[in-house]
Design a protein around this nucleic acid. Structure first.
Lengths: 201, 201
DNA sequence: TGCCTGTTTGTACAGTTGTATAGCAACTGG
DNA sequence: CCAGTTGCTATACAACTGTACAAACAGGCA
């Protein structure tokens, strides 16, 4: 059962075992929660044995950190992929928001993992929400240096707005959908109610 | 170590062991999640042994159901405690909303448990969200029979509005607070941004 | 060829989990 | 007075957990 990848690593379909393990962990952590996911389940989903998971990541906590790092990296790459050309102020922010929204809707596992990470609160360990917040803050700083972001509000306020508007709706929409589905027998053609999430500073 | 309650059961401070177990389970399930909470931790928090927990509730799943039933009961009692006197339409709904909001702000564990229950998705098992939705629906029906609720929208739409507005803000506010706290060093006196959660039908 | 470094496997171990069961203490109805 | 029920403890057990470790295996390089 010795499968072997000939060094051409980063193809989306033919990945290193290490990457396959990380992706499988993301999927399972997102679906069932990290605590409820055993290393053996991760290994089985990645098509390897437990020993290899331990060999590559050492501990389960390290594997979880690798997963979170990959999520942050995905955010950073998505933001960086939007060109910073000479646009009217606010245009770049909107474009980045759209890019992140598209990335999230294409990666349901990331949304699910984030939902768990946020609801957990997770006292003690280095936080994914903190890292994403700092990423957003850096994004705001960059735009300010380029002179395409308003300075009416503080950086913190702008970060809150970005995070809440981008994530809040994704987190709460399942609740709305489940409730509307439960009362769906009332009307044949029912429009899905749309959530509005915003912050008042 | 034989402690014994002399039959005066339902005092808020001197509870039956069965009730103490249920309360401890609610606290721990809310704080750490039900899957991450062992029956031994529940027993220790309630000051009893594991055997008694399983004696009273049989299985862990049954204990969880008892916890959820207690939550629903708390909602029902809170709603029922608001008098249904001859008021102008909409007044009763507002009073009930206020009562539920007060109850939730006094029981942080219920809020935390609900957040987990809702965001978990929790495929398969009988759902707490469903029960609360049905409670809300019954509430809307009652008000309609009494002629103090508008019939402009469907019952489903009204239930969604109630649930989302009452719960959505409570669930997302921790995210807002954590981010604002992280950037709190910017300004000495920072106002907490207030969340706005609503639905467009 | 032969060594060396990094993958990958298989298995073992101690700790924790949910659950089952046997037994003791106290109250209750007859 | 005593059989029965209930509250409660203690212990046991099989399953599963994260982690550790030795051995088999591959490819690159001298």
């Amino acid at each position: 059962m010795t499968r072997r990848q000939p060094s051409a690593a980063l193809r989306a379909d033919d990945l290193t075992a290490k990457a396959r393990i990380r992706n499988a962990a993301l999927d399972l952590f997102a679906a069932n929660g990290a605590e409820a996911t055993s290393l053996r389940a991760v290994a089985a989903a990645a098509g390897v044995t437990v020993g290899l998971v331990v060999h590559h990541y050492g501990t389960k906590e390290a594997l979880r950190e690798a997963v979170e790092l990959a999520i942050v990296e995905q955010f950073a790459q998505t933001i960086a992929s939007v060109p910073l050309g000479p646009c009217p102020p606010g245009q770049v922010t909107a474009a980045r928001d759209r890019a992140v929204a598209a990335m999230l809707s294409a990666n349901q596992a990331i949304v699910d993992y984030l939902r768990r990470a946020i609801l957990d609160g997770s006292a003690g360990r280095v936080d994914l929400v903190s890292r994403l917040s700092q990423l957003s803050a850096q994004q705001v700083d960059d735009l300010r240096e380029a002179g395409v972001a308003s300075t009416k509000h503080t950086v913190g306020e702008q970060v809150v707005t970005i995070m809440v508007r981008q994530l809040g709706r994704l987190f709460l929409q399942p609740l709305v959908d489940r409730i509307t589905d439960e009362f769906a027998d009332d009307t044949g053609a029912s429009m899905r109610p749309q959530l509005v999430v915003d912050v008042n500073h």
